[in-house]
Design a protein around this nucleic acid. Structure first.
Lengths: 188, 188
DNA sequence: TGTACATCAGTGAACGCGCGTTCACTGATGTAC
DNA sequence: TGTACATCAGTGAACGCGCGTTCACTGATGTAC
């Protein structure tokens, strides 16, 4: 057999990782197959030995993005926390200026949500599964209330989306800061 | 003088209106100049007699979209309402299944926010001005609290973005419904 | 241990196509006489 | 009232370019002898 057994698998994973970052940063449509392959140290032609087409890569890139961003923002270092303590810590991460200015390492929902809505069913199915799982993971941490978790996720996503689109650092900070406030406190 | 004096102005406005709808529905990058002009009953070549380039049209299309969607969802028929009554009515409109399934007539923030974040400064400046004005209009209706208005807008935007991306009607409805709940009630 | 071979991951030229933009022009119009 | 003219909104061919995808091939590798 030519090449080590896991060689192709490693290459595949490298393409998915680079794509996942480029899609979140530049957008799906705006990132061409040759740029993608170049970022993985390969050339255009090899792409179709790994993926049926570009949309199939988007589906895998979404899975990878959710894996990475859920771990980074909702779990790593937050293992012991629940309820309000977890909520404050997770909100601080999701609504941080770091997350605002580094979409390539962040949640795929604000960066790719609109493009996913216009993507083939295969892509939307992956997004659906992962977004729902993310919502449920939030619910688990805040006393199991899925409706409250839904509101929280929606607010996080909207805040990051708007903060990134806005061309005014102070306004962006103001938006993130306002949304960091817990619902409980917000209502007095 | 050739042609009625307002002829060019009317054509210009028609292009902006069609572009505003197509951009919201299909995305900015995904909508080509010839499709845009065709939708306005014209041909490709005339475009540059109206706009410096495609990004300049995006800026005008955003203004138009904000005008239209703010009127439709926050004002029309809601003139007498303030506080909780206005909040309930506006939330119902923004988080309606109609708004979810007709992005071409809806708010530009969930449909174009991510592309605006990657657009030239001229486009982002227009978006900033209009998004801030929208937030302030919400604040005026709910006792002047701009931070609360920011949270409300972020939640609305996130909810519609996610509900559109998700490939599951029931889940989409669940998301919109959960986000319809007023913050006050949400916190008990 | 050294060589010949079979495998297949990756190459790069080529496909047809649509992109944003430019430009020489056409032809519908209001005005002047 | 009817004709000639000047204006300029809109046309459509052309520009170079990058897109997603295909395919005949190359060459690095592990295995067999």
């Amino acid at each position: 057999m030519p090449y080590p057994i896991d060689h192709k698998h490693k290459t595949h994973a490298r393409i998915v990782d680079r794509a996942s970052r480029l899609f979140r940063k530049k957008g799906y449509l705006a990132t061409g197959v040759d740029v993608l392959m170049g970022a993985a140290g390969l050339t255009r032609g090899g792409f179709y030995a790994h993926f049926r087409n570009k949309a199939a890569l988007l589906a895998e890139a979404l899975e990878h993005a959710f894996d990475e961003s859920e771990a980074n923002m909702m779990s790593r270092g937050l293992e012991g926390l629940t309820g309000d303590a977890w909520l404050r810590a997770a909100s601080e991460r999701y609504l941080s200026t770091t997350h605002r200015s580094l979409p390539e390492e962040g949640c795929a929902v604000p960066s790719l949500g609109a493009e996913v809505a216009r993507a083939p069913a295969s892509v939307r199915r992956v997004f659906t599964k992962r977004a729902e799982a993310m919502r449920d993971r939030i619910a688990e941490r805040i006393s199991g209330d899925r409706r409250e978790a839904t509101r929280l996720l929606a607010r996080w996503v909207g805040a990051v989306l708007i903060a990134r689109a806005v061309d005014d650092r102070a306004l962006a900070d103001e938006i993130l800061d306002a949304c960091r406030e817990a619902p409980e406190r917000a209502a007095r």
